[in-house]
Amino acid sequence: MTATEQAGTSAPTPVLSLRGVSRSFGAARALLDIDLDVYAHEVVAVVGDTGAGKSTLVGVLSGAQQPDEGQVLVDGSPVALADPASARSLGIAAVFQDLALCANLDVVENLFLGQEVVRGSLLDEVAMEKQAWNLLGQLAARVPSVRIPVAGLSSAQRRAVAIARSLLGEPRVILLDEPTASLGLTQVAEFLTLVERLRARGHAVLITSHSLSDLQAVADRIVVLRLGRTNGEFRADHVTYEDLLAAVTGVAR
């Protein structure tokens, strides 16, 4: 590191890192010797073909799966993420493809499920509703009402609710697994704007997807996974679509 970089704003430590992480399922090696850093106030995109190891990577980062080898570091010190709850307590929240919302419950009930705000022995509905609007407002999410069942929302609105829920404990890292799958273009537009909002709020955001152009639109860095290995890391504003595609498919350029 040069002198000027040290003189700058507090030579940042990555919020979340992987060092030499490997993970196998039987004979299938899903991740192989992965190094990865995620900084605050940054959007990292992880791209790769089906079977490249994207979902396993999110699994390891969120505590849902344990690495066979290597270390997970939070703020530079090694931690053991035994389960998603311990990851959450360290400020790492994940939103998976299936969103895990209860379709019959309304937006407020979904947001606070298992972490309801109580006053005395009663639920503090007013406080929860206020906080729900506040969160959705910060994400500029357009939801008609917070008192309608989630089943009545569009898939982008549901995703916004799931992301809002992940924000409740003020996590520092938000992991989004395949968030743009099965969305219409209007919803993709709303989602990408939402990611920009998360970045502006200072969160570290890690997104996996196989839609290159969507990710390139909002990412600061792009990490390409191929067959469980890192096949290149790029600055999103400098890399061309062709170079990314080459890295994803493994063509030499």
Binding site: L185, T186, V188, A189, E190, L192, T193, E196, L212, S213, Q216, A217, V218, A236, D237, H238, T240, Y241
Partner: peptide
């Protein structure tokens, strides 16, 4: 009104 972030050096066709 809607805004869609675009990648750098986007192409006319897409």
């Amino acid at each position: 009104e809607q805004r869609l972030p675009l990648p750098p050096d986007h192409r006319a066709d897409s």
